[in-house]
Simulated scan of single mutants.
Amino acid sequence: MDEIRFQDPQGPQAVFGINPVTSPLKSIISLLGQNVFLDPLDKATLANIAVQGLRTAEGLRHKFDDRTVTEIWKKSSGREDVMERFLRPFCRAIQFTDPDQFSAYNFLGWIHNVAYDLPHSLAGMSWRFRPGNLSRLFRRLCVQSLSFTI
């Protein structure tokens, strides 16, 4: 997976490159472009939120454990377009919940883990369905469940 697509049912759509290792130019150009979908000020708001994920894990827990994604968006003076076009669909995609119910600590933890462990994050994203992969996954799950019951 090298890109992520966002669509606003009443407005524009955007495709962002998300793999800076295999396609860095596409990732950079897509972030700098797409100004109809999110203008540069909106992107600056998102960058401000994302930078918070670069704190230490303990710093994230201490500052964001009792907050939601909606609260950190409001604190960063986010516009409604940022919430409706990017944060809400993104939160629903990775956690199946709305930003007002999604822990900011958990959300920023995703950013933290990707930033500090990019090669493994990309390896996890490139997992493809093959019968061999599925059997290895079930084998790991069975071993883990057996280790908890013994």
Rank of each mutant, 00 (worst) to 15 (best):
M1N: 13
E3A: 14
E3R: 14
I4D: 11
R5H: 15
D8E: 13
D8P: 03
Q10F: 03
Q10S: 14
A14L: 10
A14V: 10
V15C: 06
F16E: 13
G17I: 02
I18W: 02
N19T: 07
P20G: 05
P20Y: 01
V21G: 06
V21P: 02
T22I: 03
L25G: 05
K26E: 14
I29R: 13
I29P: 00
I29T: 11
I29S: 07
L31P: 01
Q34G: 10
N35F: 02
V36M: 07
F37N: 08
L38D: 09
P40D: 08
P40F: 01
D42F: 02
K43N: 08
K43Q: 07
A44C: 06
A44R: 08
T45V: 15
L46W: 07
L46K: 12
N48Q: 09
N48R: 08
I49F: 04
A50F: 11
Q52E: 11
A57N: 08
A57I: 05
E58P: 02
R61P: 01
H62P: 00
F64Y: 15
R67I: 04
R67N: 08
R67F: 03
T68V: 03
V69W: 03
K74M: 04
K75R: 12
K75N: 11
E80S: 06
V82A: 09
V82I: 09
V82P: 00
R85Q: 09
R88H: 11
P89G: 11
F90V: 07
C91Q: 09
R92M: 11
A93F: 08
A93R: 15
I94S: 05
I94H: 09
Q95D: 14
Q95T: 04
F96G: 11
T97R: 10
T97Y: 00
T97W: 04
D98C: 04
D100Q: 10
D100R: 06
Q101A: 10
F102N: 04
A104V: 00
Y105C: 11
N106G: 00
F107C: 04
L108H: 04
G109D: 05
V114L: 05
D117K: 01
L118K: 02
L118P: 00
H120Q: 15
H120P: 01
S121V: 01
S121T: 11
G124I: 07
M125P: 05
S126K: 15
R128M: 10
R128L: 12
P131W: 03
P131A: 13
G132M: 10
G132H: 10
L134Q: 14
S135T: 15
S135A: 12
L137V: 10
L137C: 12
F138A: 11
F138I: 15
R140Y: 13
V143E: 15
S145G: 10
S145Q: 14
L146W: 11
T149N: 07
T149W: 04
